[in-house]
Computed example of a mutant assay.
Amino acid sequence: MPSGRTHDLVTYVLAIPTAVGLFFLTRHVGLTVLGTATMLFGGLMFGPDLDTHSKQYTRWGILRWLWYPYKKLFPHRSHWTHGLLWSTWLRVGYFTLVMTLALAAVLYVRAVWIDGLPADGDQAVRTLQTAGHHMSRLFRAVDGKVWLVAFIGLWWGAATHTLTDVIGSTLKSMFKTF
């Protein structure tokens, strides 16, 4: 399995052809920059190795606690975290859920401590609904092409990591037989 340094190098090297390919496909500088930036983010911070104590995990700094449940839920290199088709969707869904819950917590604290509303289950439900509503409005406010290019960038960054693992493991097993 390649090292974190190798994964980073592959991500950086592939950023240029990614940008060229995106510009060729979109003919739009903004979408090209977005797709390339999310590819870099996907490869360096939002990739498959968030399921273990890795460079990707530690790069989140004080926010790495957000990924702790993810790390505990999924075994390292499982198809859920390293699969080409679903792993990026899973991470996006997980991150969206965590951000929604974090927003709900902030709204709850504000409602109880600042607005003086009762600290009960009904208030918790209301703030969770409000957080969900805000997240939904955010997703609807952004053009679908932007979300698509951002997701493709995240997916490609993570896919380069998985493909590097597969190639590295294949080469390692091939050279063991000689």
Rank of each mutant, 00 (worst) to 15 (best):
L90I: 11
I152P: 05
W65H: 12
M174K: 11
L31C: 10
P48Q: 14
T36R: 00
A105F: 15
F46C: 04
R77N: 13
W65L: 12
F139M: 05
S78E: 11
A141D: 13
Q129N: 11
G153P: 10
L14W: 14
L117I: 05
F95G: 06
S78A: 09
W89I: 13
M99D: 02
A111H: 07
Y108R: 12
G157Y: 05
V98Y: 08
L40V: 13
G43N: 08
L63N: 12
Y12C: 06
F175H: 10
I16C: 00
V92F: 04
R140N: 11
V106H: 03
P2F: 12
H79P: 06
V20F: 12
W156I: 10
I16L: 14
S173Y: 11
S78Y: 04
L14N: 03
L148D: 00
T162F: 14
L117T: 11
T38R: 00
H76Y: 09
G157A: 06
L107W: 04
Y94G: 00
R137L: 15
W113T: 09
W147Y: 01
V112T: 13
R59D: 10
W155K: 04
R126G: 03
F151M: 03
T58R: 08
A37G: 06
T130V: 07
H161R: 07
H82R: 03
Y108P: 00
V29A: 13
S3W: 08
T6P: 01
G21R: 06
H7A: 06
T26S: 09
L107A: 10
F24Q: 13
Y70R: 02
W89S: 13
T81I: 05
H28Y: 10
S3A: 14
T164W: 05
F151K: 00
V29C: 02
L66Q: 09
L163M: 07
L31F: 12
G30K: 01
K176W: 10
L34M: 01
R137T: 11
P17V: 10
G144T: 12
L25I: 08
V13A: 11
W65E: 08
F151R: 00
G42R: 02
G35C: 08
G116W: 11
G157H: 02
G83Q: 09
D8C: 06
P118A: 09
M99Q: 07
R126K: 15
G132V: 06
V149P: 02
K71E: 15
T32Q: 05
A131N: 02
L22Y: 08
L84R: 01
T81M: 04
P17G: 04
A119V: 11
L22C: 07
H134D: 14
I114H: 04
A124S: 13
V10G: 04
S87L: 01
M45T: 11
T177K: 13
T130A: 15
T170W: 09
G47W: 01
G4L: 05
L84Q: 07
V109T: 13
V10W: 04
G42V: 10
L63S: 07
G116Q: 12
L34V: 13
Y70N: 01
T164R: 02
R27D: 13
L50A: 06
H7Y: 09
P118W: 08
K55A: 14
L107K: 03
H82W: 07
G42K: 05
W65F: 15
Q123R: 15
G61H: 09
S78C: 07
V98S: 06
D165V: 08
Y12Q: 06
F46W: 09
L66G: 01
A131F: 01
